[in-house]
Design a protein around this nucleic acid. Sequence first.
DNA 1: ACATAAAAGGATAAATAATGTCTTTTAGGG
DNA 2: CCCTAAAAGACATTATTTATCCTTTTATGT
Lengths: 136, 136
Amino acid sequence: MMELTRKGEYAIRGIVYLAGRPLDKVCLLSDIATAVDVPPTFLAKIFQQFSKIGLVKSFRGTGGGFLLGRPAENITLLEVVEAVEGPIVPNRCVAAPAECERSGYCNVHPVWRQVQLEIKSVLEGVSLRELVENSK
Amino acid sequence: MMELTRKGEYAIRGIVYLAGRPLDKVCLLSDIATAVDVPPTFLAKIFQQFSKIGLVKSFRGTGGGFLLGRPAENITLLEVVEAVEGPIVPNRCVAAPAECERSGYCNVHPVWRQVQLEIKSVLEGVSLRELVENSK
DNA sequence: ACATAAAAGGATAAATAATGTCTTTTAGGG
DNA sequence: CCCTAAAAGACATTATTTATCCTTTTATGT
Ligand code: SF4
Ligand code: SF4
């Protein structure tokens, strides 16, 4: 429970690496995959998801590759994680209270909402910029 | 990711129900299961785990059943969750930094440690007593 | 002792999710 | 037109979750 999947871990590694590259140089997926030690085909899926929501910009064909969609300081870890893992929901009822008929009177329900808040707060407080800085 | 399993949810429901019962009356597993709407065989497994670590006391044979192992105010939600889900680890490297050779210089690593702290802090702050109170 | 009640323990099965691969399609550059 | 590289979708494998069933152990009451 409560564990980031490989996909999420790979997603972070990949985009943090991209954020650390020169802004104007498109990166080959294969290069990123090699650098961060992730199966290239798996990383491809991840970057497709990033691309759909604009976290990265993709270019096809010769000379193609990926660029960061926005400045690194404007992308939070929360966005990256949610992009591939979906919303942070520590318990089902947080996403869909209606699905549990107990949610009306349940004393545990608000605790999970609080947990959600805290997790999101930590992840939202970290930008890609900070994750790249002084890492070399 | 980051989602409580059914097992965890059931565990909480079961033990909170037990905490709300008279202190000296042993509860039948089947009664608890019915009351909290959980498959009895599944709840049995959960309560076996509780029993092993003393969260509940079990009594076999005629007139047997379960009692809370300690006063409700001394049992935190964190204990209950960890009893069945294992330790709260938002990412592998939090439990075992050695398994990721990047953990030495990785800027993301401390973020997950922080997330772990926050989750544990919230769950540790809630006792079974509070979860039972004014719930009827 | 014996029958009964109830939890403990083990084996197994079905459903779901995670992890990863492969093939085909689409777009851009030369 | 041809080469390159990402997009898209189908597929395969494995691991985890979510149970169920069956036997064993332990306790109680008669
Ligand atoms: S019982 Fe409470 S905590 Fe559990 S799913 Fe329902 S509302 Fe959420
Ligand atoms: S790369 Fe960083 S965050 Fe990811 S597992 Fe390794 S230490 Fe943890």
